[in-house]
Computed example of a mutant assay.
Amino acid sequence: MTTPRTEAARFLHDRLDWNLLRTFLVIMQERSVSRAAARLYLTQPAVSLALKRLEDTLGRTLIQRHGTVFRPTRAGEEVYRLAGEIYGQMSRLETELDDRSGDITGTVRLLTVSRMDSPVYDEFLADFHRAHPRVDLQIEVMRSSEIVSSLLRNTATAGLALCRTPQDKLEQRCFLHQRYAIFCGRHHRLFGRQGLTVADLLEENFVSFTTEQLGDSLSPLAVFRDQQGFTGRIVAVSSSLDEIRRLIFAGYGIGCLPEHIVRDDLLQQRLWRLPPDEGIADVDIHLLQRRSRKMTIAEQAFLDGIERTMQRYSLAERLGGR
């Protein structure tokens, strides 16, 4: 015996258009209707209409927009999660049915910032190699500005980098959502101190990334210091996250690091978390690729694979939240 609820669900299944879900996935990834339209090679009104049709079909508001602020509703987050799972299953089915995948040959050149600390990313690389053992992978570690410049010159397949200013010629999607906080090391006088406030830090010397200049990729860290009125000197700088971490541990000064990178350091009491408790800035790592680049079969297989990974795992899962 069918109930009104099961009949309604069957009606929804029959009338739901997968293309609308696919469009919604891209809108959520780009966090912008206009950027989603560019990625899908559609007009902005067409993408807006697709979003409205999906909302009408589901009877729910999925996205709230106030000026430039883009915020998915609770229903929108759930639809995004479920649509990602559906997309991942469909993509895996295609791979399973294509017995030619192991015959793909070629080279993928990937540019990346240092310390791409993500178990999901590691598993993706393993899965890709199993599926395409004859594809050679070249990974080069660079500064974010160098990665953007190389992609604009069309000299690489894709990049994983910080990119605060969107580039018209680059497709940009958030791959890791990092939260930066302030830490000191075991050799610093504030190590182990409880009950500290931001005011207690204002005169402390700082260890700084070279990209913490205003307008650069880590400028939110410099903006926070300026807004709070920090007066201590910058006593050590580096472009390397590992070297910044090392200098903070050594007691040169306090400094900012991504929270997920230093979990083990906190457990081993190599580093100490300082206020504010909520951290100071979000600095995301984006998957970047040149829009007009004609991809080889190997490159497209790599990008399709990482796309499936992004659909399957949420941003929190990609950081390996524990």
Rank of each mutant, 00 (worst) to 15 (best):
L54Q: 07
L42M: 15
K52F: 01
A36K: 03
T95Y: 02
L93C: 09
T61M: 01
F70C: 06
T68P: 02
Q64K: 10
Q44W: 00
G76K: 07
L54I: 04
T57P: 09
G102R: 10
G102P: 09
G59M: 06
Y80A: 13
D56V: 01
Y80S: 12
A37T: 05
R81P: 02
D99A: 08
P45M: 02
A46K: 13
A36G: 06
S91P: 04
M90N: 08
R60C: 03
G102V: 09
T95V: 11
Q89C: 06
V79P: 09
E77K: 13
H66R: 11
A75W: 02
T73V: 04
T61F: 00
E94H: 09
Q89G: 07
V69E: 13
L51C: 08
L51Y: 03
S91K: 04
R65C: 04
E85H: 13
L82I: 14
S34C: 08
A46Q: 14
T73H: 08
A37V: 04
A36Q: 06
T95W: 04
L49E: 12
A50E: 03
T61A: 03
E85M: 07
I63Y: 00
G67V: 07
L40K: 03
T68F: 03
A46S: 15
G59Q: 10
S34F: 03
L93G: 12
L82W: 12
A75E: 13
R53A: 05
T68H: 10
V47P: 07
R74C: 04
R39Y: 07
Y80H: 15
R35K: 12
S91W: 04
R92P: 00
D98G: 05
L93P: 01
E55D: 08
Y80L: 06
L54A: 08
R60E: 13
L97I: 05
G76N: 10
T95K: 14
R81Q: 12
R71M: 08
L62K: 04
A75H: 08
Y80E: 15
R100L: 12
Q64L: 05
V69C: 03
Y87C: 09
A75N: 09
R71V: 05
L40Y: 05
G102H: 11
A38N: 07
V69Q: 13
L54E: 07
S101R: 15
T68D: 14
R35V: 01
T61V: 10
